[in-house]
């Protein structure tokens, strides 16, 4: 039987091959079981009345776990590909760098984010269906907000991995970026804005965490029209830089 191949199809094959490494147990499987079990337990013991607030209760700690996974296993795994020489093998295929970048992003960032955040979301949807069914769109939008936040972190981690090319440096710099981002944008900006009475700074601080914006919105609070767009903008911008770096500068 002869296999057929095209650019997109070839990229899917590379993504699947690479996903074997990303999802190789133990790692994601154990994390998935823990976050799914704890997430469901957390929301069942609490009296929730809002799907978004209920989901955030489980996904806030899950997002942290996902971020650490993306930094240390997902993106840093790309440096492992470079060190082992597997990246050279991928780049020697008749496949454009755009396709390879897409395949690596799918296997290293997108799939783990969907799975890690999706595991507790799915168990909560099943366990708390009566509440979720009141507003499934709100539930899904909240999940999407967490996913966008994770993907934004993951895109920056991938860029760090491509530039640093060593797992240790990549992991440390990625975690450092995460804490710098959350502390600088999420906390300090808010405190400074509040102390100085500059509302814009407070709004930027709020917008740096998209799930928080979702909670304010679904909780009936007021948000600026640009606030839900800030994290997606950062995601698109970081993805664009990853794409440009990988296709024009990256050398294994």
């Amino acid at each position: 039987m002869a296999y057929s191949s095209g650019g997109g199809r070839r990229a899917v094959i590379v993504a699947l091959v690479d996903m074997f490494d990303t999802l190789k147990p133990p790692g994601l499987d154990a994390l998935m079981i823990i976050v799914a079990g704890l997430g469901a337990t957390l929301v069942i013991v609490q009296p929730f009345t809002s799907p978004s607030y209920m989901l955030s209760y489980a996904l806030d700690p899950t997002l942290f776990a996902a971020t650490i996974f993306l930094a240390l296993r997902g993106a840093a795994g790309i440096t492992g590909l470079v060190e082992s020489g597997v990246m050279q093998a991928f780049l020697s295929y008749p496949l454009s760098r755009t396709h390879i970048a897409a395949a690596l992003y799918a296997s290293r960032i997108l799939a783990p984010s969907i799975i890690i955040l999706g595991a507790p979301t799915a168990t909560i949807a099943i366990a708390m269906w009566p509440l979720v069914s009141q507003d499934p769109a709100e539930f899904i939008a909240t999940y999407a907000a967490y996913l966008a936040q994770a993907l934004m972190y993951g895109s920056v981690f991938m860029l760090i991995a491509l530039i640093s090319k060593t797992p240790g440096t990549s992991g440390v710099l990625s975690v450092a970026f995460y804490f710098a981002y959350t502390v600088l944008l999420g906390l300090l900006l808010y405190i400074v804005g509040r102390a100085a009475g500059v509302e814009l700074l407070q709004r930027v601080a709020e917008a740096s965490y998209l799930p928080g914006i979702a909670l304010i919105y679904y909780g009936g609070g007021s948000i600026e029209i640009w606030q839900p767009l800030m994290v997606p903008f950062l995601l698109v911008a970081s993805l664009a830089v990853v794409y440009l770096y990988f296709t024009r500068r990256f050398e294994p």
Binding site: Y3, S5, I13, V14, V17, D18, G85, Q88, A89
Partner: peptide, 24 residues
Amino acid sequence: RPNLPSSMSVREFLESAARLKGAS
């Protein structure tokens, strides 16, 4: 430096490479 992924058997990887290169 020989450089195939270690997350699957050599056979499985070669089959993936065959799919990618349009081989049988």
